[in-house]
Amino acid sequence: MTTTLPRLVATDLDGTLVRSDGTISDYTRDVLLELDRRDVPVVFVTGRPLRWAEDVFEHVGRHGLAIISNGALVWDVARKAVDLERAIEPDLGLRSAQLLREAVPGTTYAVEDVAGIGLEPHFMERYPMPDGSRRAPVEELFDRPALKLLARHEELAPQEFWDAAEQALGGSLVITWSSSTSLLEISAPGVTKASTLELLTARLGIGAEEVVAFGDMPNDLPMLTWAGTSYAMADAHPTVTAAAGRVAPRNDDDGVARVLAGVFGL
């Protein structure tokens, strides 16, 4: 019996392909290079903003495309240019921010676009911000289309905050999360890792059944349920493990690369 190999690999980065120290191991790098030589694209599909995804772009291979910000941006790595942008329009974003803050007092916001990030004065960011980041109320930050609206709450648990936000916004925007803190990642209507990956694979003439995908957090769920073959990492969020059906070793044990080496006989 002949087994058809996947034609495309889609992988999350943090907690999945990238180790806990922020590196990609030599072993993983070698596996990705071999797949590239075999003309199997490995597409990075991440919630990271562009400025953080750039750290690993040397590993994307000759196809040169990466899906950023949970599907809001397809970036042409070779050209260093936008390939596709799926942004939140300012009116919708601002209206949604107001609705959520009314429903969940204490919510603070940051707004991501291709150029960088703007934060409300009381938004407690856990990572260093790039030079020139704006600090202003969300009404001023949403002066142009945004890739992501970030909502943070310092008292509610992540699942509690997510549930409250879903109820407040009623599906008008896509809400997900990938952090251990109560940070929601909000995208334009219909924008997920899966929907943008589907647009990209359609261009290549590749169907969902020909894709193998890897992830570890709730923002990976649409991609993992869309792909023909999907793996949750060994320490993934329980909802991800339940959805994926297969489990890869931990990211710190090069789980993605080890699975791919087995699948492709490397």
Rank of each mutant, 00 (worst) to 15 (best):
L94W: 06
G93Q: 03
E85W: 00
L84P: 05
S96P: 11
L84D: 13
V74K: 02
R101N: 12
A115P: 01
A87S: 15
S96L: 11
P90K: 03
A87R: 13
G118D: 03
E85T: 10
V104G: 11
V74A: 09
A97G: 14
G118C: 07
V111Q: 06
G93A: 06
W75A: 04
R79E: 13
V111L: 11
P105M: 02
V111R: 05
A110P: 10
D91Q: 14
L99T: 13
V82R: 04
V74F: 06
G93Y: 01
A103E: 06
E112I: 06
G106K: 12
L100F: 10
W75F: 13
L99I: 10
E89L: 11
T107I: 12
G118R: 04
G106L: 10
E112T: 08
A103C: 09
A78H: 13
L94T: 09
E112W: 03
L94N: 08
R95V: 09
K80F: 00
Q98A: 14
A110K: 04
E102C: 08
Y109C: 14
A110W: 02
V104D: 11
A97H: 09
V74H: 08
I88A: 05
L99C: 08
V77P: 01
A103G: 11
K80I: 00
A78N: 14
D76A: 10
V111D: 04
I88H: 03
A78R: 14
R86A: 09
D83V: 00
R86E: 06
Y109Q: 08
L92H: 08
K80R: 15
P105C: 05
E89C: 03
S96E: 09
V111W: 06
E112Q: 12
P90N: 04
G106T: 09
R86Y: 04
Q98G: 11
L99M: 14
R86H: 11
I88V: 13
E112K: 00
L84A: 13
G106W: 10
E102D: 15
Y109H: 15
A97R: 10
E85Y: 01
A103K: 07
A110R: 07
L100E: 05
T108D: 12
E89G: 12
E89F: 03
G93R: 01
L92W: 07
D83H: 15
R86C: 10
V82G: 01
V111S: 10
V111H: 06
L84G: 07
Q98V: 12
R95E: 15
